[in-house]
Design a protein around this nucleic acid. Structure first.
Lengths: 117, 117
DNA sequence: CGAATCTATCGACGGTTGTCAATCTATATC
DNA sequence: GATATAGATTGACAACCGTCGATAGATTCG
């Protein structure tokens, strides 16, 4: 598996499916890392807030999530490392937005009866 | 959120999307439970084996997964409680199969640009 | 019944994770 | 430069999780 400079995970197999039999250990580890990032209720709410607003700065996430600042920072980092969001620093603020393509990849991984290319 | 007697998760909102802004705490917890079940490489490989074979008995999972019997039993239980697989006992064996609808629900939850009803 | 086999449960161990107070870095403002 | 603010990092703690040996339950076969 490869890893880009931002440290996000980039499986060589962009479309490995859970339904494609025996998933290799490498593929399963890459997919599991991203699903694990989705496996926390606070991170899912964070993701929904970012998706809804299009762009959100971290400071606007504290109150709706009801978590302390280091906790929110920890979650944004986890989601960013999973490639699900990206942050852009502007002045003192970091603006987060969804990586739609990454969500599509995960959807594809869950696809039943995927037509192999 | 509701929960049936088998202990499997049953969100009242079958199609709650991560993109539908602020996901309620209940919705996010239900979704997170299922994504967390998917967030382990051994369980993803297990899922792929079941999906590929259509039906697999637990005894045939030990060797390909390279895990001890209690560990495999633990993982099948986790996936079953998440509603991703179902087991049918026949004689001494338990035959596991995929719940395709559950995978579709999770794909829908990750859908970008979902059209709200 | 007794032996063998498949699965689930229990208990324990080590590693990981979510959380927050305290602290540090970077940026902006006076 | 001094002060204030947004965010990241560190360290600590409790809770959770993956793993497996031992054991128990269920079913089949002799």
């Amino acid at each position: 598996m490869t890893r880009n400079r931002a440290g996000t995970i980039e499986p060589e197999t962009c479309c490995a499916s859970v339904l494609a039999a025996p998933l290799s250990e490498g593929q399963s580890e890459d997919l599991a890392r991203v699903f694990a990032a989705l496996g926390d209720p606070v991170r899912l709410r964070l993701l929904s807030l970012v998706a809804d607003a299009g762009e959100v700065c971290s400071c606007d996430l504290l109150e709706p999530l009801g978590k302390a600042q280091p906790t929110v920072s920890h979650h944004t980092k986890t989601l960013a490392e999973a490639g699900l969001i990206v942050g852009e620093k502007r002045g003192r603020w970091v603006w987060w937005s969804i990586v739609a393509g990454r969500l599509d990849e995960m959807r594809a991984a869950l696809a039943v009866a995927e037509v192999p290319t």
